[in-house]
Nucleic acid binder design. Sequence first.
DNA 1: CTTGACTCTCACGCAGGGTCAGGGTCTAGT
DNA 2: ACTAGACCCTGACCCTGCGTGAGAGTCAAG
Lengths: 256, 256
Amino acid sequence: MMKSPRAHLRHVTEFASEAGVTVRALHLYDRLGLLKPAALSDAGYRMYGEAELERLEHILALRFVGFNLDQIKELLAGSHLPLLAALRMQRAVVARQRRRLDSALAAIDEAERALAREERIDLWKTLCTVIEAFKMQNDWEWTKKYYSEEALEKLEEVRQGVSADAIAQAERDWSVLIAEVEAAAVRGIDPSGAEAQALATRWSALLRQFTQGNAEIQSGLNGLWSDPAHWPGDFKRPWSDAADAFIKAVMSTRGT
Amino acid sequence: MMKSPRAHLRHVTEFASEAGVTVRALHLYDRLGLLKPAALSDAGYRMYGEAELERLEHILALRFVGFNLDQIKELLAGSHLPLLAALRMQRAVVARQRRRLDSALAAIDEAERALAREERIDLWKTLCTVIEAFKMQNDWEWTKKYYSEEALEKLEEVRQGVSADAIAQAERDWSVLIAEVEAAAVRGIDPSGAEAQALATRWSALLRQFTQGNAEIQSGLNGLWSDPAHWPGDFKRPWSDAADAFIKAVMSTRGT
DNA sequence: CTTGACTCTCACGCAGGGTCAGGGTCTAGT
DNA sequence: ACTAGACCCTGACCCTGCGTGAGAGTCAAG
């Protein structure tokens, strides 16, 4: 790799103001090995040229989209291939941050309305409600690590095509079915009997409604449920161990 | 103020998990004087009661909308009056952060498209373009259309000569003054009375600090505030309509 | 009396720099 | 040759909102 050797080398301050960063930031980038000066003067002054300006612009672009300095270093070291993957991941990260800010804005608006109505008592309750809503939404994020890329895409695609009403209905269906399974487990009915088989059929149907018959989603879901050791502390299966054992027993009397 | 003296005091760990924070955060809040335990046991253990739980929830709500711990301390120390002004300012802050993330998302999308087309050369240029667009859009750019050329030059000149500290101080001054005006508006004091006139004097002084007595800037500012229909969607006046009406009434009792 | 589960305080670590302090270097004017 | 003033260097501590660990005291059960 050849650089034209003395193509207008600048001192730090000039270079910094040209690129819109501080001298201190350049010191830091130098120390981290992220951006080394083109040369050092005899007195040890940092000298920067065109190539460094270009690299700095790349650094600033990556910093703008939220990568940290370590990540930037790796991205600029490697080929462009990891870059595409990194960009997609970063998109998800930034999108989550944005949803967070949306919730904050919603909370502020709610609080303002409460204040305007002089309902000082409701103010905090209102805020808490919005915050809870945000946390709910966020609580599903951790499940993502169980799904493959394809499965996540498919899930997103499915989610787009399903109304909030349908989701609410499915949740009601699940809670009804789970209640019946709990009852059946307590009564200790025969897993191979007709009643148990009917429950299993409904269970499979609801599952299929979620997986859409997609094998990637199916296997992600299996991984998720079979890994309780790594669930967040506050997550629990929405059914009991007894019901879990029961439904597994029923399933094992059939094919799947 | 009376608290029921021993209404179920808990140790840190229990209290922390109840409120969904870490013990370490409670230590920090204690040290900062943000949330003191209701009592200390003989052994020096922190004991928390219901009042502390409530206060902690308020702290978490304010933290959620992006206030830092110092601001939260001040907000919870004062009455609810500065809260409204603070919320409006915070809204503007959060809205700006959100615009920033929007630009980051746009940049990522553009970069992905450039990468997909194998136009590696364009990649960085594309990113820089989006980032530039953000910096333009973001700051105060949209306010520029209200100012004349001369006013913009003068503003820039003034901005050069003002330190970041002075700007921060001015923001604090505004927030305090706005809180007082909000309070005065609620109390419904006489716009021609001495108290109202004192507020108006301070208001004018802060305004003059910004306009530097320049008539061009003044008229740009007037145009800006009187044109809410064309503000960006998420921009709001940092004071309430009531306060606005009040300060206008006070101003109209004098020359302006 | 020991064990284990809590608790305390102190002290350092993080990211991305900002802000001195104490000293060297370069350039211009005298 | 000397000096003033504008640059430049490194090193060390400051910021936020905690996390993490060390070393030591406390409490209830066995």
